[in-house]
């Protein structure tokens, strides 16, 4: 599970972060979590504060989506939301993969859970991208 006793100690007992893996996919995923984490610090926190502090949660309806995606800034918001989808979903699913690797050591269960996670990841990515790319305002709602 861990390359060495030191690596295990660093993870289970240290104050800091997950130790940097030696190489390969895991090293790539370690860097991805940090880069996407900093990107999401801006994208996700801005999205959260925008919806809560500027728009106001109680004011959100279907029309909010129509204004956001088909208004004058529509293309900007669609790109923003696609970036948010790709970064947040990939970051979150990779985090869940790390959690599975940390706690589920039986090979069969480990692979089953990670396969289910991969299917969910692909499905949500397709659903999210589909609505971002194809959303159209119902003609009745289009403001003149």
């Amino acid at each position: 599970m861990y390359p060495s006793e030191t690596a295990r100690e660093a993870e289970v007992g240290g104050v800091g972060a997950r130790p940097r893996p030696q190489g390969g996919f895991e090293l790539w995923s370690w860097y991805f979590m940090r880069v996407s984490g900093v990107v999401l610090l801006f994208l996700a926190v801005f999205h959260l504060l925008w919806m809560h502090w500027v728009i106001g949660l109680s004011n959100i309806t279907f029309d909010t989506i129509v204004e956001r995606w088909t208004g004058p800034l529509g293309p900007f918001w669609r790109v923003y939301d696609l970036a948010l989808l790709v970064f947040a979903l990939t970051h979150g699913m990779n985090g869940a993969r790390w959690v599975i690797n940390d706690y589920v050591h039986r090979r069969g269960w480990n692979l089953t859970l990670k396969t289910a996670l991969g299917v969910l990841y692909a499905l949500l990515m397709l659903m999210g991208a589909y609505v971002i790319f194809t959303f159209q305002a119902p003609s009745a709602l289009v403001t003149p």
Partner: peptide, 19 residues
């Protein structure tokens, strides 16, 4: 957050089917 994200992608996806 991941749990909420799953819910959130599904609810926004449903917006494709109208108000």
């Amino acid at each position: 957050i991941l749990l909420f994200l799953v819910l959130h992608v599904v609810d926004i996806f449903l917006a494709a089917f109208g108000p």
